[in-house]
Design a protein around this nucleic acid. Structure first.
Lengths: 202, 202
DNA sequence: GTGTTGATGTCAGTGACTGACATGACCATA
DNA sequence: TATGGTCATGTCAGTCACTGACATCAACAC
């Protein structure tokens, strides 16, 4: 999604201009957000550091925040597909758990924990960025609920399973990011769903 | 929270200027957001309709969105208090359910469903407003988790109960807003928590 | 009356974001 | 080797959200 071939339409090294504009903008933005904070960083600064202009920044990212969320747009499709391919006898919550575990594997593999931690540290310092993170999670919830309904779950059950599932994911993700010696993300997600089931019994 | 005495510091009708500046701004903003949409409404327009200036708008509300969320800042305190006063033998999820039911009663009584529906229709049309709504819910989640930990619940249990509880609230609230002939909000919340417990059993 | 207070107005500035148009390297094809 | 088209980028002017500094001016205290 953020690889050079997708973004520029040209294989790396063969572009007419310096390649990887989006990646360069992302790296420049993260460095500046880390060094001087999100608020104190202007888009013009980011663009200059990437060797581009402000206008070009906005051609790649819809706003100043979106540069940190570029990789997450295709994930709803993955979630829907995973729910659809879950065994027919799986309950809504089980199908949701399976889908989110797949997502966890993808996240772990795609960027690696170091990148994610770096990004999380930036998000933690700015409410506007947290808002954007939350709406991304909400879009996951919506996609999950829709896919569950397509499997025959009723509205309330689908919404609840999706929302509770994403809540479990959030908790697992937070542990994964903050722990010093973490288990794998899918494993933490499994534990989180286990805790969710225990909540109602105990 | 938005009554004239709190906002202006002067009882209604006794102010040195036209009273209820915040209420007037809120009403003006809602009318304009409804008529021409959030994006196409400028703060200057809102202020003019309320007989004030743009600068004064920003003295009452931190940004253009916040005017629709003014009433929600004190609610985290209520949630924490309700969790704290729940019976000692109540489980984390039970304490959460009790707190959110109280919140439901408050919401139903304070504004009434008509106002809430009107507001929801505006929020539904704008992603930026939805972001703000989500971060408000996230602050509820944090407050609940903190209060649950103070009751002795461990980190994961507290976070999960809070997140799953708020998820249940969201589902109930959505039903309450969208239904044509709704049950009471606390009743819908009760049902939503019931559905949550069933998710893990079925 | 005179001074203080607090809500409001005025004004200038910064920076996010947009639309319209210009540029200039690459590529295709003659 | 021209010549024209394509497309990422640059340039520029404009709107609007939001902020800090300072002015105003009705009410109230004394």
């Amino acid at each position: 999604m953020m690889s050079e071939t997708v973004i520029t339409g040209y294989p790396s090294g063969m572009g007419r201009w310096e390649p990887d504009a989006a990646s360069r903008l992302l790296e420049a933005a993260m460095e500046l957000y880390e060094k001087q904070g999100f608020d104190s960083t202007t888009v013009a600064e980011i663009a200059a550091r990437a060797g581009l202009t402000e206008r070009t920044f906005f051609r790649y990212f819809s706003d100043k925040r979106e540069v940190l969320f570029g990789g997450s747009s295709g994930l709803t499709t993955l979630l829907a597909a995973e729910v659809a391919t879950a065994p027919a006898e799986a309950s809504p919550l089980e199908a949701t758990a399976a889908a989110l575990k797949s997502l966890g594997m993808l996240i772990e593999g795609q960027r690696g924990r170091d990148f994610v931690r770096r990004r999380s540290r930036i998000l933690a310092q700015n409410p506007e960025l947290q808002e954007r993170e939350l709406i991304k999670l909400a879009s996951w919830t919506d996609a999950l609920a829709l896919a569950l309904r397509a499997r025959g779950a009723d509205e309330q059950r689908a919404s609840l399973a999706a929302a509770a599932g994403v809540a479990a994911f959030r908790v697992a993700f937070a542990r994964w990011v903050s722990s010093d010696d973490p288990q794998s993300l899918p494993e933490l997600i499994r534990e989180s769903f286990h805790g969710l089931r225990e909540l109602t019994g105990a």
